[in-house]
Design a protein around this nucleic acid. Structure first.
Lengths: 114, 114
DNA sequence: CCTTTATATTCACAAAGACGAATGCAGTTT
DNA sequence: AAACTGCATTCGTCTTTGTGAATATAAAGG
């Protein structure tokens, strides 16, 4: 069991609209920073700052692939907590974003050309 | 459904160890301020300050009885959220505290004399 | 190697939060 | 109508957080 102190630390990280939006997004799939940047319409540095907070709170994990860093929820406990907050995950297939150059979205660009 | 902004407001209120402890306490039963004061070993004004935050976040409700003000969880949604955080409520009967002069605890004083 | 790309970090300042101390205020008792 | 009791609020100070701007770093490609 976590102490009240430890719990408070995690909630502090949750107590921010942009960070909540990021976490909600990560429920359906992992995402690289540039994808979130496009999805949220915020500066890259700003997104990275919020991700740093989430990382330090142990809410997300990272995976490096070439130049990109993919973020995902840290564990099942986190995912379960988020489900309790947001309800069940809505969209099954993560959105491909226009103007996003990450691998996942680049596919859609190629497809749209063909 | 709440917006990220609205959710963040509620989490901000949760992101504090003493407030979490108060909420945890209220899960098993309502409590007056003097009771919490004794239970948490903090100054009365300090407790009231934290209660104000919880009130403004819509997490607790109040009931006035003579000189005392009893606090309880605001609604079932709040209670459910807290259960998700803390797990099931542990103690069935709320503790009677020595050195607490609220009606509930005063009973125990009378009983201990007889 | 030099550039470019994707991401991270640092800095600075405004804004908000934490909390002790002091004070206000409503309801009760005498 | 004092005086007391239980609680709430205000104030001041210190610490923390939020966020824009600038800068750093690491991986890839030429």
């Amino acid at each position: 069991m976590s102490s009240y102190e430890e719990l408070a630390v995690r909630f502090k990280a949750l107590a921010h609209p942009v960070r909540l939006q990021i976490l909600d997004m990560l429920r359906s799939d992992e995402a690289c920073v540039c994808h979130m940047e496009t999805a949220l319409g915020k500066r890259q540095a700003y997104i990275s700052q919020q991700l740093m907070v989430l990382r330090e709170a142990g809410l997300v994990d990272t995976r490096k692939d070439g130049l990109q860093v993919f973020y995902c929820l840290a564990d099942d406990i986190t995912a379960t907590l988020l489900d309790a907050i947001f309800g069940p995950v809505e969209e099954e297939r993560p959105a491909r974003l226009e103007g996003c150059s990450c691998p996942r979205c680049a596919v859609s660009v190629l497809e749209s050309v063909s």
